[in-house]
């Protein structure tokens, strides 16, 4: 099992792989499940407002190729308390930027059900003179983010040429793209372990792997 320090380092390295301009750059390629990256962002991207801005811009960009179902599954297993408020904010932002907001409704419901309501949360250690309305909706006391300055926070070319992102954008189904990306880093891991790591059920992973072997 991965300890939290490793998870923290891997999250930031993967974010650099995806093209964030606010985290230390690394040339090492990292494996991380894309939907798990989104969920763990509720924990790590809030380290400071610039990283969080970069993270929200990235989520908005990749939203059309994300699996809300997987995010739901991972969030239920991973998140607690105030992290659901942050997830709610992320998903609300995605809904504002996507043409298919309806498919994200279950995650909004999940976040609303589990969000922390006792006190307002100071996400970045400071209160806001004027609270951003979307943050307010999720009981977070924070000023606005600079979400319009995409190029300043994200290297979009790097994001779009990332192996996993590129595959999903090309229309490869989630389970196939996840297996293919995973196998670059974990050639010999069992199907059972892989299914757990990429958050798909064993049967889908087994079937997809069989097909992938046939075309290899």
């Amino acid at each position: 099992m991965m300890n939290s320090s490793n998870e923290y380092k891997r999250w930031f390295a993967f974010f650099s792989n995806l093209g964030s301009r606010t985290v230390p750059r690394t040339n090492k390629k990292i494996w991380m499940d894309l939907e798990e990256f989104v969920v763990l962002g509720t924990r790590y991207a809030t380290e400071n407002s610039r990283t969080f801005t970069s993270f929200i811009i990235t989520c908005n960009k990749v939203a059309p190729i994300l699996s809300p179902f997987k995010i739901n599954k991972i969030a239920k297993k991973t998140l607690k308390n105030t992290e659901f408020n942050v997830l709610g904010y992320i998903i609300s932002n995605i809904q504002n930027h996507t043409r298919n907001p309806g498919q994200w409704n279950s995650l909004i419901k999940l976040s609303k059900k589990n969000m922390y309501n006792l006190e307002t949360i100071n996400l970045f250690g400071s209160k806001a003179f004027k609270i951003d309305t979307l943050f307010q909706e999720w009981n977070i006391d924070s000023s606005s983010l600079e979400l319009g300055e995409i190029d300043k926070y994200l290297n979009s070319e790097k994001l779009l040429t990332h192996r996993l992102i590129h595959q999903r954008l090309s229309g490869v189904k989630t389970v196939f793209s996840d297996i293919s990306f995973y196998r670059i880093f974990h050639e010999k891991t069992s199907l059972n372990q892989m299914a757990k790591d990429i958050f798909h059920d064993y049967r889908s992973v087994y079937q997809a792997s069989e097909l992938l072997e046939l075309v290899a």
């Binding site: 407002s49 610039r50 970045f124 400071s126 983010l145 600079e146």
Partner: peptide, 12 residues
């Protein structure tokens, strides 16, 4: 900047 833009990065 914070008064005019109200951005989180300025108060941070």
């Amino acid at each position: 900047a914070y008064y005019i833009r109200g951005l989180e990065k300025d108060i941070s």
